[in-house]
Amino acid sequence: MPGPNTLIAAVALTLVLAIAGALLIDLPIESRHEILWRIRVPRVCLGLLAGAALAASGMAFQAMFRNALATPYTLGVSSGASLGAALYMRAAFRVEAAGIDGVSLAALGGAVVSTMLVYGLTRLSRAFSTATLLLAGVATSFSFTSLILLTQYTSDVTTSFRVGRWLMGGLEVVGFEPVWQVLPFAIVGLATVSVLGRELDLLVVGEDLAATRGVSVEQVKRLLFFAVSIMVGGVTAVCGPIGFVGLIVPHIGRRLVGGHHRFLAPFSVLGGAAFLVVCDTVARVAIAPVEVPVGSITALVGGPFFLTLLLWGRASRGFETS
C-alpha cells in the first residue's frame, strides 16, 4: 500500500484529469471560446467548490458522530438548507447582504436550524446508537421535505418549477456569479475544518478522552457545526441538495490514507472536488444532448454505497464504540 502522501498526490492528479475532462469533453468547435469561459469554467469551478465543501462537511460529521453513515445529507442538514432556500424562493421579498444573495442566507438559516436539532439530539442522550441517530436524521429529513413540498405546492407555476428543478441538484450555471456566491462559504468552512484536524482526531476516539487530553470539546463542536452549516447552506443555495459526496469520499479516504485528519482532510477536499466534477461530466454527457441533474448521478452511486455500508460495513465503519 502506497503511503498517504503518495495517495493524496494521486488524488490531486485525478482531480487535474477530471478538470481537463470536464472542460474539454464534447467541446463544440464553433464558439468554443465563449462556451469554455461562460459555461464550462464556471461550472467546473462550482463543482470543485461544492465537492470539496460537501466532502469536508461529511468528514467532520463522521468524526464528530464517530459514524460513517452520519453526514449532513443523511442527518437532514441538507434538507434544512433546502427548506430555507425554497421558502426564500417562494417569498415575495428579496434581500442581499454584503454581496451575498438572500437565498444563500436563507439556506444557511435552514442549515443552522437543522444542525441545532441534530446537536440537541446528541446532547439529549450521550450514548446514541447508530440506528437512533439515523432514524432521527431520516425523520428530520422527511419533515423538512414535506414542508418543501408544501412550499412548492403553494407557489406559482414558475417558482414551483424552479424549486423542483433546483431540488434535483445541479451545477448548470452561466457565468461566474454563482461561483462567487459559494466561494466565501466554502473558504470559511474549509479553513475552519482544516484548522481543527487534531481535534477531530481526538473526537473520533471519544469526547471524554478528547476533553481530558485538553480539547475544549463543546467549543470545538460548535465551531465544527457552524463550519458544516456554512458549507452545506452555501452550496445548497446555489446547487441544490447534492447527496452522498460527503458519505463516499471521506469513507474511501479513511480506508486509503487512514483516520488521521492531517491526511484525511486534504484527501477529502481534493477527492470530493474530483468526484463531483466527474459525476457532473457524466451527468452532462451520459444521455447527451439531454443533461441529467448531477444530484441524481451522485445518488445513483451513493444509494447502493450507503446500503452496502449499512448492511455489511459493521467492521469497516471503524467508529462504533461497542
Binding site: 482526531d201 473520533v204 476516539v205 471519544g206 471524554d208 478522552l209 476533553a211 481530558t212 487530553r213 485538553g214 480539547v215 475544549s216 470539546v217 479513511r254 487512514g258 483516520g259 488521521h260 471503524g318 467508529f319 462504533e320 464504540t321 461497542s322
Partner: peptide
C-alpha cells in the same frame, strides 16, 4: 482552569470499553 491546563496536570485512562481506535 482551561481544558488545556487541566490536561497538563491531570491525565486519564478510561475504562477499556472496546472503543475502536484506528490509529
Amino acid at each position: 482552569y482551561s481544558r488545556r491546563e487541566v490536561a497538563r496536570r491531570l491525565s486519564y485512562v478510561p475504562q477499556s470499553d472496546g472503543r475502536a481506535v484506528s490509529f
